[in-house]
Design a protein around this nucleic acid. Sequence first.
RNA 1: GGAAGCGUCGCAUAGUGGUCUAGUGCACACGCUUGGAAAGCGUGCAACCUGUCAAAGGGUUCGAGGGUUCGAAUCCCUCCGCUUCCGCCA
Length: 448
Amino acid sequence: MLDIKFIRDNQEAVKKAITDKNIDLDLDHLLDVDQRRRSLLTELESLQATKNQVSKEIPKLSPEDKKVKLLEMKEVDAKSDELKTQLKEVLKEYEDLMAITPNIPSPETPIGKNDEGNVPWSYWSPQLGQVDPKDTDKIAQIPTKFDFEPKDHITLGKELDLIDTEAGVKTSGFRGYYLKNEAVLLHYALIWHAIKKMQEKSFNLFTTPVLVRDFALFGSGHFPFGKDEIYQIGNPGKLSDNDTRENQYLAGTSEPSLLAYHADKILDEKDLPIKMCGISPCFRSEVGSYGKDTKGIYRIHEFMKVEQVVICKADILESDKWLESMREIAQEMLMDLKLPHRVLNICTGDMGAGKYKMYDIETWMPARKNYGETHSDSNLTDWQARRLNIRYRDHEGKTKYAYTLNNTVIASPRILIAILENYQQKDGSIVIPEVLRPLVGKDVIKKQ
RNA sequence: GGAAGCGUCGCAUAGUGGUCUAGUGCACACGCUUGGAAAGCGUGCAACCUGUCAAAGGGUUCGAGGGUUCGAAUCCCUCCGCUUCCGCCA
């Protein structure tokens, strides 16, 4: 959500954001609705003021004057009923339009229509370290080299009895899966490694509700844009269509729950930044991507994620700093695992309405012969905080909307694809990344 | 599933039809005081609409909506949310 006053004062910038982010919104229409909203409010409030005034005088009036006044009031009531009806409609439209008005992207954000407009920002491999995105020779050397034909994670998973998608589909439906044996150990080792890291970096740890209310998903910006992506639970025990009790939803990430933890609060500037780390199962319907990634465990309906969220004061420079330090944490995870990866500066068309600046981190997945998205780092400035009413009192005693940011720490089992495929050996075994060996309890996964 | 209660300006609380222009305490900000601090004293401290360079000023808002009434924080109805107790249960 943007401040309506900001929208009025910065129409060109907002229009540009709408165009660059491919949002279906006519800003002039919103401004027109806002104008009507305000004039109706003004008119209604002045009628109310008249009524209040008259009500005060009534007890002092003579019976005749009273009668006259009461007749006048009948007209005022009729008029104000009419205005209320109009206002209700206008307000509904206003709120719907405000909800989809995008945040202004950062000056460093590339302008582009879709993911093809994303710009590589840096590369990393265990051999080369940090690689400049312009150094094409070095970039070509980043992918893991094999002196044999590498297998994909599906084959590896089957041969080593680690992943069973056939049984998963039988039980759960399309995109179902079971993890087995060492894959289970790897899965939880990754999560444990991530949690411990976040605690060392003085993030507060949370297990979060996955079953959440509408407001949390609206607040994070997952509604109304990504509503299809979210599983709706409805009201268990709902008796009829007239039962208007709130629906509940299965969140696709712990971000909404972490943010909603501070909804409707006025924090103290001294308590900022608030660093939160959430661990939760995540559910995604993937309705928009039926044909994509239909094999294996790349695109699945349920997975586990360790997520980082920062709530900081309303300062672009400070929030930029947090975006970078959250990116570094995510990269540190991949460096711990010695996985080649790259950071993309996400363009306007691929970044989502609420975002100010966004990086994706993609990890090398040999069988795809490409990088696959494993992390997503975003600065939303005050766009989410306005929706969730997360404010703080600054050193002058003024209340301001806070800035919010989020990034993945680790999402599993997708990251297992990179581990299994990059760490596979000629003999069909898989070496376990060094940092995870103490947790998994062995060095290599071999065929029985 | 059954029963009862609650929702007031960041927090806590007062207010049960006109005196509410919503009081008080805490927290917070500024000032006075002080060697410095605490305490004390004073002032300020909600959102929105209007107005303005900014302000002053005016107006609306007591979970949401509707009703009764000349007049509602207060009475009635519906909804939303919360709490407690009983039952069932991992």
